Structure formats: C-alpha cells, structure tokens
Amino acid sequence: MASQGTKRSYEQMETDGERQNATEIRASVGKMIDGIGRFYIQMCTELKLSDYEGRLIQNSLTIERMVLSAFDERRNKYLEEHPSAGKDPKKTGGPIYKRVDRKWMRELVLYDKEEIRRIWRQANNGDDATAGLTHMMIWHSNLNDTTYQRTRALVRTGMDPRMCSLMQGSTLPRRSGAAGAAVKGVGTMVMELIRMIKRGINDRNFWRGENGRKTRSAYERMCNILKGKFQTAAQRAMMDQVRESRNPGNAEIEDLIFLARSALILRGSVAHKSCLPACVYGPAVASGYDFEKEGYSLVGIDPFKLLQNSQVYSLIRPNENPAHKSQLVWMACNSAAFEDLRVLSFIRGTKVSPRGKLSTRGVQIASNENMDAMESSTLELRSRYWAIRTRSGGNTNQQRASAGQISVQPAFSVQRNLPFDKPTIMAAFTGNTEGRTSDMRAEIIRMMEGAKPEEMSFQGRGVFELSDERAANPIVPSFDMSNEGSYFFGDNAEEYDN
C-alpha cells in the first residue's frame, strides 16, 4: 500500500510504541512475548500442572481467558453494579484439565481477579502490559475465525453469508486497541457500523446529549479505520460520505453494504499476525530463551520457528480426527482463516481442507461434555516452508469459486491468482447506482469489472525454506488448481455463540 510509510507498523501498534527502528520493534515485541511466557509459567505453578498438562491447549485457553477477564475493567465495573446470582464479580476462573488415573478430569478453578492481575503485572515488570493482553485477544479471535462461520451475524446486519472472507476479527472485544483495529476485516468494521446506525434509528437519543457526542466521535473513528483499509480513492470518498452524514440511517447502511461487497474484489488491507497460545510461549521462556534479547516478529519467520520446536497437546472428542484438529489450530496460529487453501497447503506441506470436510468441533470443551471418553493427542503445528504475512489485500483475480465463501483475504505475501467468483459478486451490483453516491458507485463498479483474471497478485513473492531466515531465496510455489480455494466452501461450520 502506498501510504505504508505514514502508518505505524503493526509491531508498533502491538507494543504501543512511538516510531521505533526494526531492532527496537523486535525487542519490544519480544518483551511482550516474554511477559506472556513468564505469566503462563507462574500460572502453571499456581495450578500445580504437570509439564504435559501445561502444554494442553484447553488449559492455555482457560488461563488466557482468566487474565483477560481480570483486566476487563468495563465488564468488571458492570458486574459490580449489576450483581447477578451466583456470579462473584471479583473472581474469575474456568475449567482446568488434569490427568488422573490414566483419565482426563475437569476441575473448575476460581481465583481472585486481583490475584491474577498481581501475577500478570509481576510477570511483566510491574506494568499492565496491555500489548500482551491484546495479543491474547487476537489469538482467540484468530481461533474463532478458523472455527466458526459468522453466517447468522452477517444475515442479521443485512449482509450476504458468502462475504465471510471479510469477517476477520469479528469476535475481537471493543477494547483491543490499535492492534485489534489493524486485524479487523472490512466486513467486521461494516458490521460494527451498521449495528451502531441501527441503534440510532431505533433509539432517538442515541446521537443526542453528552453521551451522543461520545457516540458520534466513536462512529467517526470507526469510519476512519474502515476508510484506511480501502485502497481505492472511490471507496475512500464513499467512506467520507458515510462519516460526514448528519443523521446516519438506511442510506448509510446501503452504502456500507455496497462497500463491503466491493471489497470482495477491490480488497481492503487487513493486517495478519501470528499470535500463538500462551502454552507455546511459556515452555520456550522456561527453556531459557530470551525473546527480548533475541527479538521477535509476528509477521516473519519467528512464529514458524517457534511452532517448529513446540509440543502442544489437545483434548480430542471420541469421533474427532486429531489431524483435522491440528489443521484448525495451525490455521489459527498463522492467522489464515480466509487465505486461499492452495497457498496454505503449499506452505504447510500437507493438504489443507475446507472447514466442512474437517471432523472436528471447536477447541474448547463445553462444561456439560462427558470427560470419560476424552483422549488427548499432539497437535501437528509444523510447516514445510515459511512466508511473510501481508497486510495488503493483493490485486484481484477471477477463479472458480464456491457456493460458500466467494473470495479470499490473503494472509501471506505469496504470488498467486486470487480466487473470487466474479459473476456471483457482480450480480449483486445491478441497477442500484442512484442517489448521492452514484458517481462513486459507478466508478467502483467500473474498477471491479476491469479486474483481470490473468493478473498475478504479489508478483514474484515466494515462500522460503525454514533454514532461509533472511528470506534470501524465494520459492514461487505451484498450486494444484483442481483443489478448492475457499475454506468455508459450501460450508456447515458451527455458528459462533458468545
């Protein structure tokens, strides 16, 4: 993207840094990872977990959730003011799984939030270390993106479920800051804005008074975040219109849905970061690795190297396929839920299948599930090659597409044709070009129609051997075009429920 120079890199967003050079960025990201790792080690000690239990991804998720809940100030305040039966607002906890007599047992633990905050700050040299908290939120978000298709949420806001490739980060909490905003897809931002506008339509006082002023500035800020994701002048001009509207209503909703559809071809720039579970960072720190000293990046080879040398386990339900569970977590670790499966298959070195073909449910185990038949197995999170994460949407291309997802959002900077089903997408653009945004709409449609099938995206960008740390010898991959490109292809993934 041309304006790259004016933006802070995501590592800076990730670490609240002012302008830093590459070495400083690597050190501050490393410091953040160190903090998460030290916190995780301490929690495993508190909970008396064995090494194996500490490497269980379900335990990692519970521990991450506990610290996120302990620092969720708004919710904590709300819980104190609106006490609900049987919930102690000062405590947080969740299921911890232990191996007892050759069987997995679930144990519900409860801790004072104050105590968890103390352990977290102690692991982070006394700081609140917001960057580390956001990092864990993005890992949870990436896992949700890989596990669930947001059909219901899309339909509720009037969008087409086939636009799911635009929904990265749709389950990120509001408090995820600049680093969170960077990884949100165009569809996620559109959905947040539509929800806001709908509230304004239904509630006369939404934009009024002292609160209304705050609401208005939040609305304009979200519009600017979305505008910054678009790469064409016409899309940005249309966002200006939406932002400046005196009284946002149905016309703005129409414009936003139009823009979301246009992003299936004229893709937005959305950041991709490899955020790993805390149970990967903990053992690495415990083994003596100093992330701050060595430096770390979320968008280069580092996460690949770390996963190459990590042992992570997962509980497996009786009829689940461990290899499929591994694929789910591998995609989440690489922030690749909406990437082209052919690119992923090449990088991973084994075939990556669409969601609907995987015999696996989510990673988390519900409290009512029976533990008797639970097994555990090693997650295979290694890769054959590594590639640089991208934040450009890439230019655009036609490809055989599917009944489910009709476009992709690249996660890796790797040369390819970008699949999208042009006739299906263009069919949504018939007729409606009147109104105050008509010239911009016409211009956007013209650009979409001009998108050429034979153009290559990320020209000359390749993948790298894991021994090639400096990215000196790019390998331009070859793809098996007979395979499906979309992950949520004609899909039956479970729906995400809060």
Rank of each mutant, 00 (worst) to 15 (best):
Q4K: 02
K7C: 11
G17F: 09
S28T: 12
K31F: 09
I41H: 15
M43N: 00
C44H: 09
Y52K: 01
Y52S: 14
G54M: 12
Q58K: 05
L61P: 06
R65F: 02
L68N: 01
L68G: 01
Y78I: 09
E81A: 02
G86V: 03
G86M: 04
D88S: 02
I96T: 15
V100L: 04
R102H: 15
K103T: 14
W104T: 05
R118T: 12
I119C: 04
Q122S: 00
Q122T: 01
S141K: 12
N142Y: 15
M163R: 05
C164K: 02
R175T: 05
A178W: 14
A179F: 13
G185A: 07
T188V: 09
R195W: 08
K198I: 08
F206L: 06
T215M: 12
R221P: 08
K227L: 08
G228M: 06
M239Q: 12
E244L: 07
L256H: 09
A263Q: 07
L264N: 14
S269W: 10
A271Q: 09
H272V: 13
H272M: 11
H272L: 13
S274G: 08
C275M: 07
C275N: 10
L276E: 12
A278S: 12
Y281W: 09
P283H: 02
A286S: 05
L306M: 04
L307N: 08
L307H: 13
Q311L: 15
V312T: 01
L315G: 03
R317S: 08
N319I: 08
E320Q: 13
Q327Y: 13
L328W: 10
M331N: 07
L341S: 12
L341C: 06
G349L: 01
T360E: 10
R361Y: 08
T378W: 07
R382M: 13
R384D: 11
W386G: 13
I388E: 06
G394K: 03
Q399H: 06
S402Q: 12
S402W: 08
Q405R: 06
K422C: 01
T424V: 00
A427Y: 06
F429L: 06
G431A: 04
A442T: 13
I444C: 03
K452N: 12
F464M: 09
E465Q: 08
A471G: 01
Y487S: 06
A493T: 06
N498H: 00
